[in-house]
């Protein structure tokens, strides 16, 4: 009987032998110890989303870029902590020791939006921001056989037909939802949100004609525009990405609404000044690195640097602004 156990273990180890080689390289990094001060061990960069998410990819690109500038040959490892509507990871960063070994790669969703619902232990100013790293706008997109060729035609339609236009979001209170509600408020129109759970589902909804439009990230929108399925009507963000110079901003249409999805590195509050500076400088240099910028562009996000104070200002401003929007539509009290 024991033979059988041994046999199955042997088979397992043979099967695994092939791939364990690839693993060794990555675990070696953990061993190089040095005497000098920070960092004495590996730095964790927590991502509150699952593997394969765009935030994770941003984190991996930046961590790899910043590693070069971290003294003592220490590395930065990206750790996925998904769950709890992406608040688990953020909660973990919030509760970690402020020693610089635990950092978070968080987005506007955790930093400015989730706290508004009042169910998280952290709020918009409970982190020590280190720097803002990337930003991306969202596009109001419709199917290409829709009757509206331009944003103005669309606006005219929704003005005449309040509550008729349906759009797909990735959840109530998501950045997608907020961006459209901001437009509704600024243009004084009414459109109807249909909440789905993922970007893929929203695309399906528009493709199948179940909703008339959606607010999409450039990466998604681009592909369907290329294939001739979708048409972009407007840019709901604050700036124009390189590949989308022709898409009008709401600002240009005389509407005061802009919602960007930003991502940045934060630490638990109480981080020593020198450690903060060291981490900030490493990530800043990574962000300035042309090859890092190139990789970010490949996944359709734009590098955007802001220092700690400025980043906090942005978080707080978004927090206040989105709070107003959410109150208006009755999602929070």
């Amino acid at each position: 009987m024991k033979k059988l156990v041994m046999l199955s273990m042997l088979i397992l180890s043979l099967i695994l032998g092939g791939c364990s080689q690839t693993q060794k390289a990555s675990s070696e990094n953990n061993e190089g110890q040095a005497n000098s001060d920070f960092p004495k061990k590996t730095i964790q960069l927590i991502v509150p989303y699952a593997s394969g998410s765009s935030t994770e990819m941003i984190a991996r690109v930046l961590a790899k870029g910043a590693e070069k500038y971290i003294p003592n040959g220490q590395s930065i490892v990206v750790v996925n902590k998904p769950g709890g509507a992406a608040t688990i990871g953020a909660t973990e960063v919030h509760g970690a020791k402020p020693d610089g070994y635990t950092l978070g790669m968080l987005t506007v969703s955790q930093l400015s939006l989730q706290p508004l619902f009042g169910k998280t232990v952290f709020t918009h100013d409970s982190f020590q921001p280190i720097l803002q790293a990337t930003v991306v706008p969202q596009f109001l997109t419709v199917k290409s056989d829709a009757p509206w060729k331009t944003f103005d035609e669309w606006l005219e339609y929704v003005k005449k037909n309040p509550g008729k236009f349906t759009y797909a979001t990735v959840g109530a209170g998501s950045t997608v939802h907020i961006s459209m509600e901001a437009l509704n408020a600024a243009a004084n129109v009414k459109t109807k949100a249909v909440h789905f759970e993922s970007g893929g589902e929203t695309v399906t909804a528009v493709l199948g004609g179940h909703t008339q439009g959606a607010s999409l990230l450039p990466q998604t929108a681009k592909e369907y525009v290329k294939s001739g399925d979708f048409r972009i009507l407007a840019n709901l963000g604050s700036y124009k990405p390189e590949a989308h110079q022709d898409t009008p901003l709401l600002k240009e249409k005389g509407l005061d609404a802009e919602v960007d999805v930003f991502t940045g590195v934060v630490a638990p509050k109480g981080l020593p000044q020198d450690v903060q500076k060291l981490i900030h400088d490493a990530f800043k240099q990574a962000l300035d690195d042309p090859s890092v910028q190139e990789q970010l562009k490949e996944i359709d996000v734009d590098p955007k640097y802001a220092g700690p104070e400025e980043f906090q200002k942005e978080i707080t401003e978004s927090y206040n602004e989105y709070g107003k929007i959410l109150k208006n539509i009755g999602l929070v009290e």
């Binding site: 709890g84 608040t87 909660t91 619902f117 109530a172």
Partner: peptide, 20 residues
Amino acid sequence: GMDPASGAIRFTFGQQELLG
């Protein structure tokens, strides 16, 4: 957990882990 349709939080009894 969090209701995707309304963002309302249901039956989590104050537990962060149950949000999702």
